[in-house]
């Protein structure tokens, strides 16, 4: 049972959240312009690193808000997804 820090509610048990997969997979601005491969990549291809992954969670049983965290998939160590770091990505 992970302990997840909701940016609005604080530390809560994992059961209050739903996982939202890899963060920053943006919905394409104009899907019709993508070829089948590019659209397939958007739909199905996600990073699966052994190490840090920026991922989305939603506090479904709490404030219902979405947020991103950085999690080490090997140790489950979690840290906030800092906006300044987002800019540099």
């Amino acid at each position: 049972m992970l302990l997840i820090r909701c940016p609005w509610c604080g530390d809560r048990d994992e059961v209050e959240f739903r996982y939202g997969g890899q963060a920053d997979v943006d919905y394409p601005a104009d899907p019709e312009r993508l070829d089948d491969t590019a659209w397939g990549n958007y739909l199905f291809v996600r990073a699966n690193p052994l190490g840090t992954l920026t991922e989305r969670w939603v506090h479904t049983a709490g404030c219902r808000r979405w947020f991103s965290v950085v999690r080490d998939t090997a140790t489950n160590e979690m840290s906030p997804d800092i906006p300044s770091r987002r800019e540099s990505r």
Binding site: R18, G20, D26, Y27, R56, V58, R65
Partner: peptide, 11 residues
Amino acid sequence: LDWLEEWLQTE
């Protein structure tokens, strides 16, 4: 409802 919220909040 979750689905609607997800798109509204994240996209």
